[in-house]
Nucleic acid binder design. Structure first.
Lengths: 216, 216
DNA sequence: TGTACATCAGTGAACGCGCGTTCACTGATGTAC
DNA sequence: TGTACATCAGTGAACGCGCGTTCACTGATGTAC
């Protein structure tokens, strides 16, 4: 990770300057993962991490904000992928399913994705804060609509499957998002509090909000 | 509130320098309420707001952190008081109550206090972030235990009354806190999201977590 | 009622810091002859 | 195989900024005689 003495960087060959761009984003991402928040992330620190002087960054990003946007966009995509990749522990074959089995499979997917979301947030609070924290909207991110939309969709889909016509899937998914966000940020900032078991807490929310029996 | 041209301040008389201390805390509090976060709050800005030079602050606070702690401590007390003051809309006389009435009264208190908490947070996101945000623990606040403890107690008490022996009051109160925190912070930072009705959302959480019938 | 004095609330200049950003430049590399 | 040259990735110095904090001081006030 970060070394006290920055490694001097071998200069790229002409035509390969683009490589530096990736290295810069990588370094910014690594620092963001270590540091507490995007606000504490300075261009100069990123340059130090890469082994470069700060002005060299301007060949690839016209502004600090633009660089941060690149980092955050990549992380958003990564989080959405992590949710989609999260599989329920005991996935059964999709065939020979009645409606009840389908509902319970969808609930398992919800559980798996909420666990993935919370794990992602708790592992790197600084990254999470950059995505969903107080200054998230100042980063100039412009997806279609809200930047968290792809992530939210990965939650809304299985909730819809689980509820079918019986319930307001949008409201339930929103409530789940709120609960997960609360878990990640409060557990990160209130280290002194006596938090119970994480999975049990998540499970309480999923069960209560989806009217499902608890698994633990 | 803040004026562009700071009002020149009349010098306190000898022996009355202590007055400045209160004015400084008031100004810092006002700026915190306006600004987004404590990190953006500078000693010099506070001094400007009071109509004083920055070094004058050091007569009353040895450090910026100590000043912020004073502000935050006062706000914590204010939030706890706001919760305790929150009364259910239709409070009935305490006499002639059976167990069922007592439970429903306790649930009403829970509803009232959660509404008060969320209202407090949404009205002043900067203040709220200073109390419960990512950097809250760096403020050097030392109550007995965690600084939010008095606030948490104001929530735990009615939850305990509502549940009696049937349920884990600590877990439910914790979940409610998490949900409220999620509501406040996500609604503050994700302004672009289509949030539904606030009271309805809060109500869903209270009902789901306390196994109570929904009121709306 | 008048003067000398001590108190002390608050000032003004200065410090060193890290920041984002600009600018003119250097010097290793690949290419053309 | 050797030399001149153009490219361009990255450097180094400098800018103005606001910050927290320090220090020696000023000058209005209340008090003692």
């Amino acid at each position: 990770m970060t070394s006290a003495t920055p490694a001097p960087r071998a200069r790229n060959r002409p035509g390969e300057g683009g490589r530096l761009r990736d290295d810069i984003v990588d370094a910014a991402d690594a620092l963001l993962a270590d540091a507490g928040s995007a606000a504490r992330l300075s261009l100069r620190a990123i340059a130090r991490e890469v082994g470069i002087t700060a002005p060299a960054i301007y060949a690839h990003f016209t502004t600090k904000e633009q660089l941060l946007s690149a980092v955050v966009a990549r992380r958003f995509a990564g989080l959405a992928q992590a949710l989609r990749d999260a599989e329920p522990e005991s996935a059964e074959p999709a065939s020979t399913r009645g409606p009840a089995e389908q509902r319970s499979a969808a609930i398992s997917t919800v559980r798996a994705r909420t666990r993935a979301y919370v794990a992602y947030g708790l592992e790197h609070p600084g990254v999470y804060a950059a995505l969903f924290g107080p200054d998230a909207d100042h980063l100039g991110l412009t997806y279609e609509g809200s930047p968290g939309e792809e992530v939210f969709a990965a939650l809304l889909d299985p909730v819809s499957s689980a509820l079918g016509d019986h319930g307001d899937a949008l409201a339930v998914a929103t409530d789940l998002w709120v609960a997960m966000h609360g878990i990640v940020t409060l557990r990160s900032s209130q280290r002194g509090f006596v938090w119970g078991d994480l999975d049990a807490q998540l499970d309480r929310f999923v069960s209560a909000l989806l009217d499902a029996p608890r698994t633990r």
